[in-house]
Nucleic acid binder design. Structure first.
Length: 271
DNA sequence: AGATGTCCCTGGAAGC
DNA sequence: TGCTTCCAGGGACATC
């Protein structure tokens, strides 16, 4: 499912082609998570200035207004000069002078939201509560440790909540905790400075590595040229229940936290 | 403010 | 073989 590395991989693959493009038409399929927020015709004639990212939101900044895209858990974007006719799960087509950008999303947890500015309430509701970007300077061990001090729930749930640090979904949360040797049930506020330092480094390493290899293809992710990522070949614990830990051979275990599966090695993650 | 549970959706896997 | 049930999960929202 698309987490930060997949969204960033997508951003990088579409941005060079999309910047400068003029919108010719917008076609909508079935309703996505939220309504677009403007009439499709309203967008025609506008030009793409930049393609940015905040957390898991892609921000297509136009000469007037912004399209906020979220890939949910099954969404992917394609960009090509000529695309096949729309099929059942193609729910948003942005036809431009530089090709068509298409959102394919079988489960429709994704969204495309138009706002005039990122300061308006509809945008702020989605972006304001987001934590720091893990691959930018604002994410550092001391601040991370401070933020974790007043969180009573498990570190895994705090990571997924995304209000301290964004972009770490279930796969990368499991992987980062494994790399740091921390049990997913460990209480966030009880982590030592040393543990937080390791976790901080692990998050950065895991996300950066995933971007470097083009994201994960778990749950059918592919970039905008339809290429798959390779991160899933390096997964240490995610979706490996019962299989031997790649470090110590102990069988990987699972547990449920907040309706979500965690995968961990009971021997490597005792912290 | 923080924690917890519910809901949205549908393809694929598992169970009968 | 064909049905039903379960599961995957991001994140807004309601509730405590």
């Amino acid at each position: 499912m698309p987490e930060l590395p997949e969204v960033e991989t997508t951003r990088r693959s579409i941005a060079p082609h999309l910047v400068g493009a003029q919108i010719a038409a917008v076609h909508l399929g079935k309703p996505l998570r939220w309504p677009l927020g403007c009439a499709p015709e309203h967008l025609v004639g506008r030009c793409v200035r930049e393609v940015n990212r905040r957390g898991k939101y892609l921000l297509i900044e136009l000469d007037a207004g912004v399209l906020m895209l979220h890939l949910g858990m099954s969404g992917s974007l394609q960009l090509a000069a000529q695309l096949a006719p729309r099929s059942t799960h193609d729910h948003f087509d942005l036809l431009t002078s530089h090709g068509t950008l298409r959102l394919h999303d079988p489960r429709r947890f994704g969204a495309v939201v138009y706002v005039d500015t990122l300061q308006e309430p509809r945008a702020r509701k989605l972006l304001d509560h987001l934590g720091v970007e893990p691959l930018q300077a604002g994410f550092e061990p001391a601040g991370f440790h401070r933020a974790l001090q007043h969180r009573r729930s498990s570190i895994k749930q705090v990571l997924l909540a995304g209000d301290i640090v964004v972009g770490v979904g279930n796969i990368y949360a499991c992987e980062a905790l494994f790399m740091a040797g921390i049990h997913p049930s460990a209480l966030a506020h009880a982590l030592t400075r040393q543990q937080v330092k390791r976790l901080h480094a692990s998050i950065v390493t895991v996300l950066q590595r995933a971007i470097d290899v083009g994201g994960s293809t778990l749950r059918n992710f592919s970039n905008a040229q339809g290429q798959s990522g390779h991160f899933q070949q390096e997964v240490m614990v995610y979706a490996r229940a019962g299989q031997p830990c790649r470090v110590c051979q102990t069988p990987i275990q699972t547990l449920r936290q907040g309706q979500r599966s965690s995968f961990f090695c009971p021997r490597c993650q005792r912290g």
